[in-house]
Design a protein around this nucleic acid. Sequence first.
DNA 1: TCACTTATTGACAATGATTATCAATAGCGA
DNA 2: TCGCTATTGATAATCATTGTCAATAAGTGA
Lengths: 129, 129
Amino acid sequence: MKRNTWQRSAVRTALDDQEAFVSAQQLHLQLRKDGTGIGLATVYRALADLASIGEADTLQSEEGEALYRACSTGKHHHHLICRECGATVEFEANDIEEWAKRVAREHGFSNPEHVVDVFGVCAKCSKLK
Amino acid sequence: MKRNTWQRSAVRTALDDQEAFVSAQQLHLQLRKDGTGIGLATVYRALADLASIGEADTLQSEEGEALYRACSTGKHHHHLICRECGATVEFEANDIEEWAKRVAREHGFSNPEHVVDVFGVCAKCSKLK
DNA sequence: TCACTTATTGACAATGATTATCAATAGCGA
DNA sequence: TCGCTATTGATAATCATTGTCAATAAGTGA
Ligand SMILES: [Zn+2]
Ligand SMILES: [Zn+2]
Ligand SMILES: [Zn+2]
Ligand SMILES: [Zn+2]
């Protein structure tokens, strides 16, 4: 059965504290700074677990690095992400859900899924220019 | 200035022959099978070039691998991709373009870009079950 | 055609993220 | 508390991608 370890809750907490999407490496660094002696492999495992049970969202950075984020809702949603600071806004978009299904159906594709993310520069980062 | 080498045209041709998104590694393997002695680094470089001038589209696989595809049009478009065989359908969706811009604007984000891909199982692959 | 300049190539090393190993540790049920 | 075994973490292994650099060859002008 699944056991409760301080490592797992530490990862969950550290992820909750992040406003932006972060990599396993970044989170590990943060956890070390916080004084925990948690191992890198454990952070990878904990993040993979959180993602698999739907408690964390994941996406690939432009460079192919896996990024994670604790999302406020378990419901399916999308992200608007700042390219500068990583600040992220969550939102739902029923039009998109319907649209994706329709596009798949119209071309004979079944079991549709979709990757929909919007990137930009947030208001705060725009001012700093 | 940019020089024309048989390596670059070989990569372009090999990519044109692919129906699906392929990785640099896969394309290199194919080119070797075809009898060319092209180097792996050269394939990576050629693909990066093609992508930068807009003659190839790129996306990250689920595992974070960079995949490339020669697209039929230089215009901005999106993809419907079969999870089984990789077969890809290109399509435009003006609704999505407008929607993405609007979402960014509504949250104070500037210079919006977006990643929109739909995945599913194509009709051909569905039958094979 | 011919030499010359230098962009390009390719074998190989280096990087960097992620995963596999495996002995030691520590939940948790009995 | 005891025992079983899931979990951990240091480390090695994997694998895609990029950097290095001497050798090669594309393009240019004589
Ligand atoms: Zn920002
Ligand atoms: Zn959606
Ligand atoms: Zn298919
Ligand atoms: Zn678009």
